[in-house]
Computed example of a mutant assay.
Amino acid sequence: MENILSGAAMGAGLTVAGVYSPDIIISQFKFSDFTMLQTFLTAAAGSTLAVTLSQALGLTRLPPRPATSLGLLPTRYDGNLIGGALLGAGMALSGACPGSALAQLGVGVPSGRWALGGAVLAGVVWAGFQQQQKQKQKQQRTPAPAPEGNEENKNENKPGPPATATATTLAGLLGTTPLAAAAALESALLLALFALSRLTPAAAAVARGVPPYLGGLGIVLAQAVSLALRRAPIGASSAFEELGAYLYAGAPRKHANVVFSAGLVAGAWLAARAVPALRPVADVAVSPARSVAGGFLMVLGARVAGGCTSGHGISGLSLLSLSSFVTVAATFAAGGLVGLAFN
Rank of each mutant, 00 (worst) to 15 (best):
A12Y: 02
G83E: 01
P211R: 11
G311K: 04
F296A: 07
A305F: 01
L173F: 14
G46Y: 02
G160K: 12
V107F: 01
L185E: 15
R231H: 13
R65F: 05
K30C: 10
P74N: 15
A101L: 09
Q139Y: 10
I25V: 15
G90E: 04
I25L: 10
E242A: 04
S287Q: 10
P64N: 13
T177F: 04
A96L: 07
E148W: 11
S111M: 08
S32N: 13
L319D: 02
G306R: 00
K136S: 13
R208M: 09
Y248L: 08
Y20L: 03
V124A: 09
A262D: 12
D33L: 08
P145M: 08
G83F: 00
E2V: 12
R208S: 13
G250T: 03
I25E: 05
L199G: 09
L174H: 07
L102E: 04
G128M: 06
A272E: 04
A163F: 10
L199F: 07
P288S: 10
A333E: 04
G58Y: 05
S226D: 12
G215D: 03
P212Q: 15
S238E: 11
L193P: 00
P66A: 12
I219A: 03
K254N: 14
G209V: 09
L317Y: 04
L81I: 12
T75A: 11
A127S: 11
L59M: 12
R279D: 05
L270D: 11
I24G: 03
I24K: 06
D33A: 13
L247Q: 03
G7H: 10
T169E: 12
V338T: 09
V286C: 07
G336L: 00
A89C: 10
P280N: 15
E156A: 15
W269V: 13
S226C: 09
P178C: 11
N155E: 15
A302W: 00
T169R: 00
V220W: 01
T42L: 05
G7I: 10
G13I: 05
L270G: 10
P201E: 13
V125K: 06
V281Q: 13
G313A: 05
T309E: 09
L214R: 07
